[in-house]
């Protein structure tokens, strides 16, 4: 029987970064980069997607009816002050005692809370800043409240909403490695093992992989914004950008 053991266990301390990074064994197998990358991407995508599915509708509806303005800006901003690591670390014993294991709930909930904040705030602002004139014009044309929100405010705020999701996704990718310090794996394992084994190559490798993934995530969202934004709205956004330097 093959013993399941963490990958990268026998990475020598004096190995050069490139030597490590371009070794096929570094990428494949149990605890290899590919497996760790999939672990990380799945969790990050899930946390960001759930946060967006919950935060965008709530923020949009509240902003449309001009409700909870103080609570939106103050309470939600305040929640940024709570460190994600502390939340996850507090949730781990709770999850273990319920028999749910180390993963995925503690780290998922912590990342979800991290992602909710920028998505909620950006969506609220996006809907709120749609010019009154556009909304009034839509109402004059006979649009109901749901159509005003869905077809006017949402379309005109889409760029800012997507920017919020992008910021959230990047933050989540950059924060997800804490799970390696709480009984999990993912790309953070290289940072954790590197610190534990006093192996700088592993720490640097982990940082590059995590930073690289965060950069790619940001890039994908920029491309996504290009794809999904209607041409008219994109032109509008550009004009607004020119008007307010």
């Amino acid at each position: 029987m093959v013993v399941a053991r963490p990958g990268q266990t026998a990475v020598p301390r004096d190995i050069g970064f490139f030597e490590w990074f371009f070794d096929a064994d570094t990428w494949t197998g149990n605890g290899g980069i590919i497996e760790s990358l999939i672990d990380t991407v799945v969790l990050c995508a899930a946390a960001t997607a759930v946060a967006a599915l919950i935060a965008v509708p709530i923020a949009a509806v509240l902003a449309h009816y001009r409700k909870a303005q103080v609570a939106s800006t103050w309470l939600v901003s305040l929640s940024r002050a709570v460190p994600t690591f502390a939340i996850a670390a507090l949730l781990v014993p709770w999850s273990l005692r319920r028999g749910w294991g180390f993963e995925p709930w503690p780290i998922f909930i912590a990342l979800f809370l991290l992602a909710v904040v920028p998505i909620y705030l950006n969506t609220y602002v996006a809907i709120r800043q749609v010019p009154e004139g556009s909304v009034d014009a839509a109402r004059a044309l006979g649009y109901g409240e749901s159509s005003v929100l869905g077809r006017i405010e949402f379309a005109m705020g889409a760029s800012l909403i997507l920017a919020g999701i992008r910021v959230a996704a990047i933050q989540v990718v950059a924060t997800e490695p804490i799970r390696a310090f709480l009984g999990g794996d993912g790309l953070g394992r290289y940072v954790r093992d590197g610190f534990g084994q006093n192996n700088t190559t592993l720490v640097v490798g982990g940082i590059i992989l995590i930073g690289g993934l965060a950069a790619i995530t940001g890039l994908l969202f920029v491309l996504l914004e290009r794809l999904v934004l209607p041409t008219g709205v994109r032109r509008l956004v550009r004009q607004q950008g020119e008007r307010q330097p």
Partner: peptide
């Protein structure tokens, strides 16, 4: 608008760094 969201991005990217500092210390 763009400058605003950019500044926010930078601030948020720093947050995980701080978290990692804590982890490293712990």
């Amino acid at each position: 608008m763009t400058t605003h969201s950019k500044r926010r991005t930078v601030a948020k990217l720093l947050a995980p760094l701080v978290a990692f500092g804590l982890v490293a210390a712990a």
